[in-house]
Structure formats: structure tokens, C-alpha cells
Amino acid sequence: MQRVNMIMAESPGLITICLLGYLLSAECTVFLDHENANKILNRPKRYNSGKLEEFVQGNLERECMEEKCSFEEAREVFENTERTTEFWKQYVDGDQCESNPCLNGGSCKDDINSYECWCPFGFEGKNCELDVTCNIKNGRCEQFCKNSADNKVVCSCTEGYRLAENQKSCEPAVPFPCGRVSVSQTSKLTRAETVFPDVDYVNSTEAETILDNITQSTQSFNDFTRVVGGEDAKPGQFPWQVVLNGKVDAFCGGSIVNEKWIVTAAHCVETGVKITVVAGEHNIEETEHTEQKRNVIRIIPHHNYNAAINKYNHDIALLELDEPLVLNSYVTPICIADKEYTNIFLKFGSGYVSGWGRVFHKGRSALVLQYLRVPLVDRATCLRSTKFTIYNNMFCAGFHEGGRDSCQGDSGGPHVTEVEGTSFLTGIISWGEECAMKGKYGIYTKVSRYVNWIKEKTKLT
């Protein structure tokens, strides 16, 4: 034993070699072989497995989906700052455009905790909710729209109204504003409101030439003092309507412009014939205590009207009353817009006519005020429907199939267009061939041609 100890002390290297040989010859039971080890760690190889990531292109799944990435790591994937920024906006807080917040056709661009709407022409605001041009839906104005110097929408209202708090709607500024039905039992019968379409306001006024200088022999019209197929109006439903009495009662109609003036057809009036105007009328054979009678003290036909040349060209006249009318729910003026808007309103496509005229061709006159909704007829169809001249200051309205029309005794009465609950004068009943005849239409004086003249002559002093 002493000898062994001496050998170990003198030859430590020998001992180490012996131990190493023993270990190498022993069977290893701690580690699995290569094949079995792979069965336990069965993990798919990654895209760049075996390579240094710093030297390969980034992978979106590896960089940002398996674990949260930084902007720089995302930049490695896209290799483009702009594309990385677009991805980053949604990656950080989701897609803010998912709810489609942009209105009126706006395009949404996502941002971090926010979004941006790219608005089409005519709109602005956070969600493109603000109209900035009158060309689109009248700028959301209830009545009139004008573009300011910086191309912003400025709404306005006709006389007797003021802008509401929203700067879009119009509200009454006087007790009985024009064009409004205020009798409670008839307010439910107000005709369907007309909503502004998209309009090209630059070209809204037709490029028409008034044929002022045409000389033409007097034409022989049949029954051209021209509501057939209409309905009984309720008291106060058309408070701007008046009836004219002269040699015979209810020979023509008219509309209240203001307390002192009536507008009617020029062919209705004769110099030297006494005319009485009755406002607030409903049943011409009954006294309903809503009527107001006034005498006409002055007749002003349009300066281009000449019955000797043509009885229905420039067929418009103004009547001055001896005493002002007292405005109330049964006696209310009709609204008159400017030339541009009167023309736009007419193009809405349908209007209402009213009167006490004959209820059928050569038949009896109506006792109760009649009204009828009539569609506008395109000019080409209008011209083809008659052998008589249709001037540019006239328009056609009615039904091709016949059966409904204005008729004798309705002449001078109103053709009105309702705009968001307020009625505007767009025409004056003038003439036609018979009444409600198939293929024939009622012919009306186009008020847009005469609004400046009306307003100039009827100013209240």
C-alpha cells in the first residue's frame, strides 16, 4: 500500500490518463441519441435557420407576430419608411378606419389613436360632414345658397324668414311668412316636400332668348283662358290664391305678392273693366268669414305684352289694390325667389296649380277651390304637342294621358313649387288646347323671366 501511494504521488498524470480511459469505455446513459432527441424537440425550422439574422431580410411573422416588435424591426421587413409607417399605425392600436367614419364618399386613412378623412370636392370637416359648395344638395341650405369668396357655403332665406341657429334652416321672422300653410287642420295635408338634388348652379339658368321682337298675326285659340281631375282644397291650404270678379264672377285667378299687390295673367284683364279681388276665398257660393274683398285701382301688364300681336306672350300683369290686405292664416303671400332659384325650383319637376275653373272641358265651374299636382314636361315634348308657338318664356306641365289639367277660369292662378315646406311661385296658368285632352298640356308663363320686374313694381313704400 505504501508503494502504491508513492507511485500516485510521483505520477499524477498517469492516474488522470487511467481515469479518462475508464470513462470513455463506459456506456453513456444520461444523453439520448440524435434521433430520439429530435422526437422530443420537434420544432419547425425557421426561415433563416442556421444563418445569422443580421444578414437576412426581415420576416413579418418572425419579427412582429411571434413577439412584439419595434418600429426598427418592422422597418427591416418593409425596407421602406412609408410602408412601415402605414403598417405601424394599425399594428400599434388597430384600424381606426374600420367603422368607416368618413361621410359623403370620403376616404379614410388610419393613424395612431386617430384617423384622417380625405374629402371629395365640396366637403370638409373631420368626417367630411361639412358642405362647402352650393353645387351639392344646395349646400344643405333649406332655401338659398351662395358661395363666399373663400368658396364656403353661405345660406340665406327669402323675405319674412331668418336663418336658424344651425345656419342652414329657415324659420319665420314674421307672423305670416310667405308660402307657408298655417291653418292647423290643413298642415297635415301639406304636399310632399321637395329635397334639393345635386345641381350645376353655374349652368342652372337656361341660355334662352326671349323672342321679344317676333311679330306674329293673332292666333285663334280655343278655350285658351284655361282644375280638371283635381281635388277639393281645404280652407287655408292655398292662402296665396285669390279669385278675380268682373263682368262675371271667378273669371280668373291670381296670387298675393304682398298686402297691396296681386300677380295674374295679362290676358285676364281689360282696361276700363272694374275688377274686384277676393282673398281668403274657399267656396265661392258661401260666406265663410275668411274672405277679404278689395278693388283694383291700377293694372300693370308687362311692358312687352301686346294682345294685338299675341294674347299669351309675356302673359303676366300686376294688380294694385285700393287697401292693403290683412295677412292671416287664410290670406298669405306666395314666396318669389330670384331668377336663378325660381328656375331651379321649376326644374324640380312638379308643381301645384289651383283655381275655381271648370271641372271638365266646357263644363261647370268649381264651387270649392280645386288643386292638382302636375309634372313638368320637357321642352321637346311640349313643342311636338301643339302647332302653336311655345315661346321661351312659357313652359308645359300636365299629363300625356289627359284627364287632369287646369281649365277655363283658372287662368292667372299660381303654379307653385314647394321647397322644404315653403311654396314659391314658378308659373302662372296661361293657356292650353281644350282641357285635359290626351297628348295636350297646360301652358304656363315662366315666372323666372319676370321676377325682377315683379319685385321692382310691387315694392311697398
Rank of each mutant, 00 (worst) to 15 (best):
G236D: 03
E270T: 13
K247G: 08
A366K: 14
V30A: 12
Y450R: 02
V154L: 10
Y312R: 10
W240I: 01
N147S: 08
C178G: 00
E73K: 07
D315W: 01
N295G: 07
I136E: 14
S365M: 12
T276A: 08
A173K: 10
V199Y: 14
K168E: 05
G355I: 05
E420R: 11
Y352A: 06
R358A: 11
R226G: 12
C141A: 00
D93T: 08
R358E: 11
P177R: 01
W431Y: 13
H415T: 00
A192E: 11
P324S: 06
E165W: 07
A26S: 10
A308W: 05
S385K: 12
C170T: 02
Y391H: 14
E231F: 07
D410N: 10
L346R: 04
G280V: 01
W261E: 00
L52W: 06
S423L: 11
I454C: 01
N100Q: 11
G439L: 03
A317Y: 01
E72D: 15
E286L: 13
N313M: 09
G272L: 05
N452S: 14
S148Y: 06
T218C: 05
E82K: 11
I390N: 12
R298C: 03
S255P: 00
D338H: 05
N147W: 14
G421N: 10
G122I: 01
Y91A: 15
N151I: 09
A279T: 03
C145S: 02
E285A: 08
I309H: 11
V248H: 12
K39P: 15
Q237L: 09
C435G: 05
R294G: 01
A173F: 09
N104S: 03
V183H: 06
T209D: 11
D95N: 14
V202R: 12
E159I: 08
D322T: 03
R449Y: 14
V77M: 09
Q57N: 10
D200P: 12
V447N: 00
V4I: 11
S255T: 13
V257E: 00
E129S: 02
V374K: 03
A149R: 09
Q57T: 06
G439C: 05
C18R: 03
N304E: 11
S406I: 11
G246H: 08
A397Y: 01
G272V: 09
V248Q: 11
H361V: 12
D200R: 11
T209P: 12
L425S: 00
H400A: 14
S217Q: 13
K440R: 13
L41G: 15
R62M: 04
T271S: 10
V451D: 01
S354L: 13
T133E: 05
V56E: 07
G106W: 00
K247L: 07
R358Y: 07
L425Y: 01
T194P: 08
D111E: 06
C396D: 00
P235G: 05
N48H: 12
R3F: 10
E35L: 06
T445W: 01
N48E: 15
R83F: 07
G58Y: 05
E116V: 09
C268Q: 01
H314R: 02
L32A: 15
S411L: 13
G246P: 04
A380I: 09
H303A: 08
S385I: 12
G439W: 04
Q237W: 10
N113T: 06
C435I: 03
Y115Q: 02
H267K: 05
Q370T: 06
E320R: 02
I256V: 07
T290V: 06
E171C: 04
K311P: 11
P175G: 07
C435P: 03
K45Y: 05
E340S: 08
G403Y: 13
L41A: 15
S406T: 13
D315V: 00
G402Q: 13
Y391W: 11
S255R: 00
K311W: 04
D200K: 12
V227R: 11
S385L: 11
V257A: 03
I210P: 07
N166R: 02
D249I: 05
N213V: 09
Y305S: 02
V248N: 10
D93C: 02
M8E: 09
V273D: 08
I15V: 08
L321C: 02
D150P: 07
E401C: 05
I428S: 00
I136Y: 15
G351K: 01
E10Y: 05
K347R: 14
V416Q: 06
K362A: 14
E73F: 06
C128M: 00
E323L: 10
T190V: 12
Q167T: 11
L14T: 04
A366W: 08
D198S: 13
E98H: 09
F71P: 12
Q241E: 03
N313C: 05
N100A: 05
L103F: 06
F123G: 02
G160A: 02
K51L: 05
H267R: 06
C119R: 00
G125H: 02
L211D: 11
D315C: 01
S204F: 13
N304C: 06
F78P: 15
Q90W: 06
D378G: 09
A164G: 10
N151L: 11
N304T: 05
G427M: 01
L372C: 13
N38T: 14
C102T: 00
V374H: 02
N222D: 11
V278E: 03
C108Y: 02
R294L: 01
G246V: 05
I40T: 02
Q216L: 11
A380E: 10
L14G: 04
L211R: 06
E340Y: 12
E116M: 09
C119V: 00
Y312V: 08
L369Y: 11
F395Q: 00
T16W: 13
N42E: 08
V296D: 01
V451S: 13
S423N: 15
V447D: 00
F87A: 15
E54N: 07
Y341N: 11
A279F: 01
N127T: 06
R46I: 11
E98G: 08
N100M: 07
Y391R: 14
N48S: 14
K362S: 09
R83V: 13
C335S: 01
R373C: 03
K137A: 09
I344Y: 12
V326E: 10
I17P: 03
S148M: 07
E159N: 08
S49E: 15
P333N: 04
F399N: 13
V296T: 03
I299H: 06
F87Q: 15
N38Y: 14
H282W: 12
I309F: 10
Y161H: 04
Y115R: 02
F399Y: 15
P44A: 12
L367C: 08
S11C: 12
K362Y: 06
E270I: 09
R379T: 13
E231Y: 05
C117V: 01
E231H: 13
G125F: 00
G254H: 00
I336A: 01
G442D: 03
T225N: 13
L163W: 01
T426D: 00
R379K: 14
E456I: 11
T264V: 04
C382S: 02
A37D: 01
Y352Q: 03
H34A: 11
F238S: 03
F176A: 04
K362P: 08
E129F: 01
E171W: 07
F395A: 01
E281P: 09
D315A: 02
V359S: 14
S184L: 13
W431V: 14
V228G: 05
V248C: 04
D410H: 14
G363V: 07
Q167I: 05
Q185G: 13
G413C: 08
N42R: 06
I428Y: 05
L325S: 01
V277F: 01
F221W: 12
A250P: 08
W431P: 07
R43H: 09
T194S: 11
T133R: 05
T445R: 02
C396R: 02
L211C: 09
D232C: 09
R294P: 00
S184Y: 11
C335T: 01
C141W: 00
E231L: 08
K293C: 05
K260I: 04
G230D: 05
N222T: 09
I443K: 03
A173I: 10
N328R: 01
E171D: 10
K51E: 08
V368H: 13
V227I: 12
D410M: 15
R62H: 04
K311D: 03
L346E: 04
G432C: 10
V243N: 04
E67V: 04
N5H: 12
C178L: 01
R46P: 15
C157K: 00
P12Y: 14
W453S: 01
T209L: 13
T16S: 06
E129M: 02
E116S: 13
S184A: 12
E418F: 09
Y47P: 13
F399H: 12
S114E: 08
E27N: 07
L376R: 05
E420N: 09
I344G: 09
V195N: 12
D111V: 06
N5T: 12
F176N: 08
Y330N: 05
Y22H: 06
P239R: 00
G58V: 15
A26P: 02
T190H: 13
G413A: 13
M6G: 13
